[in-house]
Amino acid sequence: MLEIRNLSKSFQGLQVFSGIDLTVEDRPGEKSPLIGVIGPNGAGKTTLFNIFTGYAKADGGSVIFDGKELLGKKPHEIVRAGLTRTFQSTLAFRQLTVKENVLVAAYLHEDFSFLERFIYPLVSLKLTQKKTRDAQERAEKVLSMVGMLDDMDMVSGNLPYGKQKKLGIAMGLATEPKLLALDEPAAGLNPHETAETMELLQEINRGGTAVLVIEHNMKLIMTACERIYVLSGGRIIAEGLPQEIAKNERVIEVYLGKGMTAHA
C-alpha cells in the first residue's frame, strides 16, 4: 500500500535522515496493518510524515502509494488518493463547531461539481441538499464512533484538549482513508484518554483501515502495534515485532536508555 524507499531530507544542509525505508503492506482479505513509528524527540518522525503527505519536499527517494508516486503531490491530492494524516498540534478548525469540523472532511467524497462548489451556494442551499445530507449522515456516524455526538454543537476551540485530539482523529476518519497516519495521537493526554485513544485506533484498524502511528508512549505502541519502526540518528535503526523491539540492544541504548524505560 505504502512503500517508502531510500528517503532523505535535510534542512539548510543539516541532515535530518537518509536512506529511510518503510512499508505498509496491502493485505486484501486479511486484517489491515497497524504499524508504529517511534524515536526520540527531534528524530524526524514528523518530518517523515510531512514528506509523504505533501507538506515538505524530500531531497531524494520515493514514496509509492497504491502504485502511484506521492512525492510532488499536494496534501489534498494525497488525501484524495486515500492517505490521510493528523497533526501533532494543529487539531481542529477552532471557530467551527465539532460537527462542522467533521463535515468539512466528510465533503471530500461528495465530489461536488464546479457549479455545486462555486455557483449554487450563492443561490440556494436546496441545490446541493442531497450531497450535503449525505455528508451530514457520514459525519454523524463518525462522531458516534468516536463518542462525540453529545459535543456536536460545541465550538471546537472551547473543547478540552483531549476532545480536540479526538476530533482530529474523527476528521481524519471522515475522509474515509485507506491508510490513516497519526502523529502522536496520545501526546498530552491523561492515562484514561490514552487508553481510549488506543482502543479507538484498534477499532478503526479492525474496520479495515490501515494505521500508521507515531507515538511517544511506549506502552501504547507496544500493545497496539503489530510492527514497529525505530527512527534515530537519521536512520531506521530497528524494525520488527514489539517484543523484538523491546529487546533490541540499540533501541534500548538510544531510545529506552534516555529515561524512557519507565514507560516501557
Partner: peptide, 24 residues
Amino acid sequence: RSHTGKILMSIRDSEPLADSVGVN
C-alpha cells in the same frame, strides 16, 4: 450556510489542516 461557506471558514481557521482533509 452552505458547504462552501464552511470550507471557507475552515481555511480561515487553518489552511494546512483544511488541506489535510482534502480541501484545495
